[in-house]
């Protein structure tokens, strides 16, 4: 039992280490969503980001050494290829985690108004905020991902934190100002959400954005890999490592374009 625990703590300690400074790493991987979706970034996401960050450095070193010997001791080429491939590694895998967080946030946003309305109904019948939250949690009405957030409210309440303060602070999980205000006014009668034009507008905007983006992306994804790979294969010998620079640059560029689109979609 004792060894098991020690093992676990050693493991978690190793997972906690980040060679790249955490601030820079999180900013590079998460970008804008670090603020806008901060309640949906779980501890395991941070762990994965740290692991990816550490692996990036390992990729950098290993590829630098391999290319150094393959390119017959050409140190500049080795450094360029390893730098590009490690950046591509960080961006592509970081984006995978980033889009998972965004998906989680979107799922919450879609059912946020049901949560507020349920709470409002609970408040009318119980007249007690902590009891309403307990009711909300009791019937598996909430996803595991953000259950903790609501459990923490009850925990804080039991610790003796002022109820109004909890309500004011906790409302920040809702991205839309209307929902946030509704939650912060949960004790009053008018917190109930009876119309939701923002959501419809957002979905319509989202559709339009996707329609626009698809044209751009198809142009990029069809033209870039096809034309440039043809041209490059004529320009470079097939046994030159420089060839790898192109797919890696495509990886960085493509992911950044995708990320830019996601940013616009979540900010609109």
């Amino acid at each position: 039992m004792g060894t098991g625990l020690t093992k676990k703590t050693t493991r978690s300690r190793i997972m906690d280490v980040s060679i790249i400074p955490k601030k820079i790493l999180y900013r590079a991987v998460l970008g804008k969503i670090r603020n806008s979706s901060r309640f949906f970034i779980l501890e395991k996401d941070y762990t994965s980001i740290r692991v990816i960050g550490n692996l990036t450095l390992i990729v950098l070193i290993v590829i630098a050494i391999i290319t150094y010997f393959i390119t017959q001791l050409n140190i500049i080429l080795a450094l360029v290829i390893s730098a590009i491939s490690s950046i591509a590694f960080l961006i592509v895998f970081g984006d995978y985690i980033r889009s998972k967080i965004l998906e989680r946030h979107q799922k919450f946003d879609e059912s946020a108004f049901i949560i507020i309305n349920s709470l409002s109904i609970n408040m009318t019948s119980t007249q007690s905020f902590p009891y309403s939250i307990e009711l909300l949690l009791s019937k598996s009405g909430i996803d595991e991902d953000y259950k903790k957030y609501f459990q923490e409210m009850i925990y804080n309440f039991n610790l003796g934190v002022d109820e109004d303060e909890i309500i004011q602070e906790s409302g920040k999980i809702f991205q839309t100002k209307k929902y946030e205000n509704a939650f912060q006014n949960i004790k009053t009668e008018n917190s109930f959400i009876d119309s939701d034009p923002d959501f419809l507008l957002r979905v319509r905007n989202g559709i339009k954005l996707i329609e626009d983006n698809i044209v751009i992306f198809i142009a990029i994804s069809c033209l870039l890999p096809l034309v440039l790979s043809m041209v490059l294969s004529f320009l470079l010998p097939s046994d030159s490592l420089t060839i790898f620079v192109f797919p890696l640059l495509y990886a960085i560029f493509g992911t950044l374009v995708l990320r830019f689109m996601q940013n616009r979609e979540s900010c609109d």
Binding site: I114, I115, I121, N122, G141, I142
Partner: peptide, 12 residues
Amino acid sequence: PALTNLFTSIDN
């Protein structure tokens, strides 16, 4: 999932 809660709120 929040729908469950909506229906159960009526219980009170």
